[in-house]
Amino acid sequence: MPDGEVLLDVSGLSVRFPTSDGVVNAVDDLSFQVRRGETFGIVGESGSGKSVTNLALLGLLNRRAANIEGTALFKGRDLLTMPPGELRRIRGKEIAMIFQDPFACLHPMYRVGDQLVEAIRAHERVPRRQAAERAIEVLAAVGIPKPRERFRDYPHQYSGGMRQRAMIAMALLLNPDVLIADEPTTALDVTVQAQILELIDRVKKEFDIAVVLITHDLGVVAEVAQTVMVMYAGRAMEQGPRQQVFGKPLHPYTWGLLESIPHVDQKVSRLVPIEGAPPSLIFVPPGCPFHPRCPHRFGPCDQKRPEFRDRGGGHAEACHLSADEKRTLWAERQERFTRAAV
């Protein structure tokens, strides 16, 4: 368990979008803490509420369209209730964010350098030239070759990996405490992915910050996160230290996820998908939202919502099965899985 200072303390976060078709429950009663020096991984399928969670924290959701409840304390101040002007001063300066598609995230009509300088000058009164010098330094720090020349380039002159590096540079300009990375590697080539993940890990250590890493890729989380939260239908299914969640997963949904990733070292001829599809967020199944797809569902699953509880050592999950049942079931599944593989 990381022991850095708690930077982000989210509790009871719910995000609902009233639409003409009904209320979309994008995030439902989510709680987690992020500490300095750790990478907090949020994993889930598309539409599980990962991105919405973080957009909500930074006030990047349209407040008129979204119904946000709960608290999100950042160094003791609640992000969800503070006035927009105050939140704006935190955005980019204390909490920075990078996004999935670096092709679309930089403004195509402004020079990369100007976009960096603008980010500095949105928060600090410094002369342009000085801001530019700092931007060039940070571009160099994130591994952009010839940063002084590249500073004057437009985004379309950058490669995908370089754009994501530039985005990371933009995020680091003002020494933030938290870096939220929303699918930072999804749009990149596999080789570039590894470089970007390494870079994020390096800056986390160098700048001593907390990283919230949102991804649908369990492999990415397994590589860099210290704490993992598995989301499904806007809720946390399982959360805990990486070794716990990957080594002794407790929730049938996590089991399904782990079984569905390919391993190079195991000769699996066929991957095991999770049967069915994620539910509509307007009509979330009652009880446990995963129960229609869960092979182990029983009596209370479609009636009672399982409590999200700590099962020891910071490893929490929400499932009605008892600890013993889970142990046996997971052992069985693992055996079946490996046997199928051979």
């Binding site: 704006r88 001063r89 955005r91 980019g92 996004f99 679309a104 930089l106 980010a119 949105a122 933009m170």
Partner: peptide, 24 residues
Amino acid sequence: DYIRTARAKGLTERRVVFKHGLRA
């Protein structure tokens, strides 16, 4: 997406709209 980036870096809404939005 680049408008979201502009907001995420803490620009004022006025600047987001008139510089980043309008230009494009």
